[in-house]
Amino acid sequence: MKIAIASGKGGTGKTTLSTNLASYLAESRKVVLTDLDVEEPNSGLFLKSELFFSEDKYKMIPEWNKVDCTLCGECQDNCNYHAVIQVVDTIMVFPELCHSCFACSELCPTNSLPMIPQKMGELQHFKTKNFDFIESRLIIGEEQAVPLIKQTLDYVDSQFDKDVVKIYDSPPGTSCPVIEATKDADFIILITEPTPFGLNDVILAIDTMKELKKDFAIVINRFGIGNDDIIKYCEENKIDIIAKIPNQRAAAELYSKGELMYPKIPEVKAELEKIVKYLESQVL
């Protein structure tokens, strides 16, 4: 079972919900939490864990070999990402723009662009007291999150059986990294805050999930601030709101200390119970 937690807007509580939900579910089930926000993974800040395994992750990048190159220009015309450019008598490669599609390499008449592995980040697998936690981190300057997200998902699939509940802390936004992080999930929880910004961005996320034909529902975080436009929107569009995590100073204090909320705030635990009941009725 795969459950992705996404948001549209950043800072609405993806990591808070992911870590608390994973820990709470792990009291009664096998769980693995994976932080797919590889540009700045932060779930680990809230978990006490020990490193179990780590490995470097590589993407394949073309490297120009000038010996047989006839400077025909095919490579730059075949690259959709402007990562390969012929500059007079040289072929320049911009690795951070490369999507590892192999087009330049495969279509080169003289095989002058062999694909070479290049490190893009690191995957780490941790064990907490009662569940597994995996995070991947791009190296600084690396622009492409998707290949690392994909390899992280492959790792999780290879290490855990189908009956393990897999929770994915997704990146913010609605662009390629979010698509990659959610496209294989069985269910998406979209977490938002009840503000105009939160509503605007969660509508973008809702439209994205509809486009992907995903089952999803809404969790409102920091309930009590802002206005009730999100509730009206969900009523009008027949979207389930499955929990409302109340806005509390105590929650912010625990967050700032890097602690989970539900063990100390009964209202948060009650909302997690609602989420689990809903998931049980839908997918678990």
Binding site: Y81, H82, E96, C176
Partner: peptide, 29 residues
Amino acid sequence: AHGAGPKAARKIIEYKAEVLITGNGPGGN
């Protein structure tokens, strides 16, 4: 999303321009 700079630089090569006049200046790539 990405690669606007190198794409534009290709245009400069195509036009065989010797001088570029702009505002902020091109980025790293």
